[in-house]
Design a protein around this nucleic acid. Structure first.
Length: 294
DNA sequence: AATTCTATCAACCGCGGCCGT
DNA sequence: CACGGCCGCGGTTGATAGAAT
């Protein structure tokens, strides 16, 4: 059996509110408040409206502290960061934006900000360190680690079907080690790199000064099944590496517009190059298995 | 100028959770 | 503790304005 309706739908007006209804509701609420009961309110106020409709109209439109008009860039970033942190909890997000309602934020997200974010115009990651990364060309480091018995990060575990329980980010020092290895040592045959669409990045293609190599990657369209935004304008710069024994691996990426959003949403395919230079089966690292540091 | 398409946002809907009885 | 009713939330719909054809 379904839930009983909150009001008699045959006897209440629906659809857009008229200025007269707005005025009636506003003056009633300013004089009497809600009385703690929205369901009974419309009758008391002399409105042929559902109580829920009155509540929504007041909270989303008539309240005196509502801020109308466009969102600022700061608000954009707050919304994006919070969305990455807590997901679509619009009321929580709206509570951080004075004068904005959950409905406003939700609509703004669905119609504009989601697209803007995919285009890389606003922040897309989930911690404060990202703020300095989003608009710079600093590479983002994606790190991962498994519950390898030895305790060392090991991409190979993914290949072989071991369960992965803990994912660690690399520390800045580890990042440097990985970077140094990538830039100064020979990239071993067993290096990992994205599944298809990317060429193998050779050590001499990595520019030590900028940590960026753009020459070897021209097409990232197949990095994942639905990575259109990444494929369109992403410029992944450096994808590396391990030390030849499959004990460590990392993916360092700079897509030109900040964090690789599709990695966040879709994960990344990697492919192993074997000792004989042939390609072994791919590994998929899901978004939940990825983390990053600056 | 007419029609179709697209974007926007107000409003609706149903569900989960809280609270009073 | 169980139940019923309301509130608040998040997903979705639909009306409408503006842009494109």
């Amino acid at each position: 059996m379904g839930r009983a309706p909150c009001c008699d739908k045959a006897n209440v007006k629906r659809g857009p509110w008229s200025p007269e209804e707005d005025a009636t509701l506003k003056s009633y609420l300013e004089a009497h408040g809600t009385g703690g009961n929205w369901i009974a309110l419309p009758k008391k106020a002399g409105l042929r409206r559902c109580g829920k409709s009155c509540r929504l109209r007041w909270l989303n439109y008539l309240r005196p502290d509502i801020k109308h008009g466009g969102f600022t860039e700061d608000e954009d970033n707050i919304i994006c960061n919070l969305y990455n942190e807590i997901g679509s909890r619009w009321s929580v997000i709206a509570s951080q934006l004075p004068g904005r309602t959950d409905n406003d934020v939700k609509n703004y997200w669905n119609t504009k900000l989601k697209k803007k974010r995919l285009a890389g115009k606003v922040n897309g990651a989930n911690n404060s360190s990202y703020n300095t990364m989003s608009t710079s060309n600093a590479p983002a480091l994606l790190g991962f680690a498994s519950n390898h018995p030895s305790g060392s990060p090991n991409l190979d575990m993914y290949h072989r079907g071991f369960s992965v329980s803990g994912i660690n980010t690399f520390t800045a020092a580890e990042c440097q080690v990985i970077y140094d290895r990538a830039t100064t040592a020979n990239v071993p045959n067993s290096a990992y790199y994205p599944y298809t669409g990317f060429d193998h990045i050779k050590s001499n293609e990595i520019e030590a000064s900028s940590k960026v190599s753009t020459s070897s990657i021209s097409n990232s369209s197949s990095i994942s099944s639905s990575s259109s935004s990444l494929a369109m304008d992403g410029k992944p710069s450096l994808l590396t590496c391990d030390k030849g024994t499959l004990d460590e691996a990392a993916a360092m990426m700079d897509f030109g517009f900040g964090f690789p959003f599709d990695a966040v949403n879709n994960g990344i395919w990697f492919q192993e190059r074997a000792q004989d230079n042939s390609l072994n089966c791919g590994s998929y690292i899901s978004s939940s298995d990825l983390n990053y540091i600056c």
